[in-house]
């Protein structure tokens, strides 16, 4: 990590830059899975408390995103996808980003504890610290397994949502955690295949950079199989009904089919990586459908 920004600046950052620091696009999926975890719980929350819980999940994710950008501004500056972010673009000083991230993180955890329960607040705190310390600081620059272990950070929201509603963790939210945890490697490796030159330039040891595209394609399939098993598991275990079960089976089969198309693709050229791009795009839809179906299942077949 370096302590320089791309350009010297004297102007205070715009408020929009602080919003951008929270990675709003990533936050959408986090908020959605957190909300679904909350709605799937066998307890009906007061709407105000439910809203506050989801707000805290969003703010916690925003804090983690801000601290991630604070620590990674040197990497972001050399990657095409990230160089226009507030820090590498020189629109904000590092100290402001650090203070904003820490403040937002503490605020989200305290508000969660006061509005719902301290178990949910604790899980939220662990998720923020995991993303920042374990993934961003420890793993990302050191090992190609960075997103495998770091993927746990993104898997926490449904668990936090469930914990906010019930005050405990049960088998279903743990399975939801497992689904997102196992989904993260195929999702990110599909992306990193066609932007691997960016990662290589930034010195990030993503799997396609370190082990090559062939090994990454095998790993994508190897992680997709247990992910599909975890996705379908709530149905035979009696934790979800047929609405969820059928959606999980159908969409997991499509996911696996796309993963196998990635496996048989032999090209190393980003322009010829249509299967990888399709898998990446579908993986986002997959998670939305899976979690949406879980909530629909609970509402239609209580």
């Amino acid at each position: 990590m370096t302590t320089t920004t791309a350009t010297p600046r004297t102007l205070p950052a715009e408020w929009r830059d602080f919003v951008e620091l929270t990675k709003p696009k990533v936050m959408r999926l986090v908020v959605f899975t957190g909300l679904c975890g909350l709605l799937a719980a066998p307890v009906t929350m007061h709407p105000v408390l439910a809203f506050t819980a989801v707000l805290c999940i969003a703010l916690g994710a925003g804090a983690a995103g801000a601290l991630n950008q604070w620590y990674e501004s040197d990497i972001d500056a050399v990657m095409k996808r990230t160089r226009s972010r507030p820090l590498p673009a020189g629109r904000m000083d590092r100290e402001s980003a650090l203070h904003f991230g820490v403040g937002l993180g503490i605020f989200s955890v305290l508000l969660m504890g006061l509005a719902t329960n301290w178990f949910a607040a604790g899980v939220l705190a662990v998720s923020i610290l995991f993303y920042v310390l374990v993934y961003t600081v420890w793993l990302k620059r050191r090992t190609p397994q960075n997103i495998v272990i770091g993927g746990a950070a993104g898997a926490f929201p449904p668990l936090v949502g469930w914990a906010a509603a019930t005050g405990q963790a049960d088998l279903l939210p743990l399975l939801l955690f497992a689904i997102v945890f196992l989904w993260t490697p195929p999702h990110f490796w599909a992306l990193s295949m066609f932007v691997r030159s960016d990662y290589a330039k930034a010195g990030v040891p993503m799997l396609p950079v370190v082990a090559g595209v062939g090994a990454t394609r095998v790993q994508i399939v190897l992680y997709s199989l247990p992910m599909a098993a975890a996705a379908v598991a709530p149905w035979p275990l009696g934790l979800a009904g047929a609405v969820y079960g059928l959606a999980a089976v159908a969409f997991s089969l499509i996911f696996l089919a796309l993963a196998f198309r990635v496996l048989v693709n032999r090209s190393a050229e980003p322009a010829e990586m249509k299967p990888e791009k399709q898998l990446f795009a579908f993986s986002i839809l997959y998670l939305f459908v899976l979690f949406g179906a879980l909530v629909a299942d609970k509402l239609l077949m209580p």
């Binding site: 007061h46 105000v48 408390l49 506050t52 707000l55 006061l114 509005a115």
Partner: peptide
């Protein structure tokens, strides 16, 4: 405003 409604909701619970 949120704190006000959280307080009302928790008192109701």
């Amino acid at each position: 405003i949120l704190l006000y409604f959280i307080t009302i909701a928790r008192m109701g619970a």
